[in-house]
């Protein structure tokens, strides 16, 4: 079952656009995941990462209300949490240290995100 593919996973979502964030959260929830967040600012994201004991994966919008998300990405990488970048930008703004990080363009089609997340976790 496609919907069950993320079941039991705790997925952190950082997305400042309310409608996108709520759609994404619903989609993940439909896939069986527990959504942490979503968070609309870098500050809240960092806070959440630091307070949440278990994070299985994360989807990060690169730009949250003008702040680049990379400090949060660094923190996740430190904790060994796999994550994906969701962005409208091309790759050039992403620092090299995140070269291998998976990325999908918004809007992504049904199931694409879940698939990408699974790949990231499996790596």
């Amino acid at each position: 079952m496609r919907e069950q593919s993320l079941s039991g996973l705790r997925i952190l979502v950082a997305e400042d656009e309310f409608m996108i964030a709520s759609d994404l959260a619903r989609e993940l929830a439909d896939a069986g995941a527990t959504v942490l967040g979503p968070t609309a600012s870098l500050e809240k994201t960092l806070q959440l990462i630091q307070t949440e004991a278990a994070i299985d994966a994360s989807i990060l919008d690169i730009n949250l209300q003008g702040d680049m998300i990379f400090p949060a990405a660094d923190l996740l990488q430190e904790r060994g949490v796999p994550f994906l970048f969701a962005t409208g930008y091309d790759g050039s703004v992403i620092p090299r240290r995140f070269e291998g990080v998976g990325r999908f363009d918004k809007p992504a089609g049904n199931g694409v995100i879940a698939l990408a997340l699974r790949e990231a976790i499996a790596r």
Binding site: E17, M19, D23, G88, Y89, P107
Partner: peptide
């Protein structure tokens, strides 16, 4: 691009 994609998403 960012805005366009966001907009489409919206």
């Amino acid at each position: 691009q960012h805005r366009t994609r966001n907009l489409l998403r919206i």
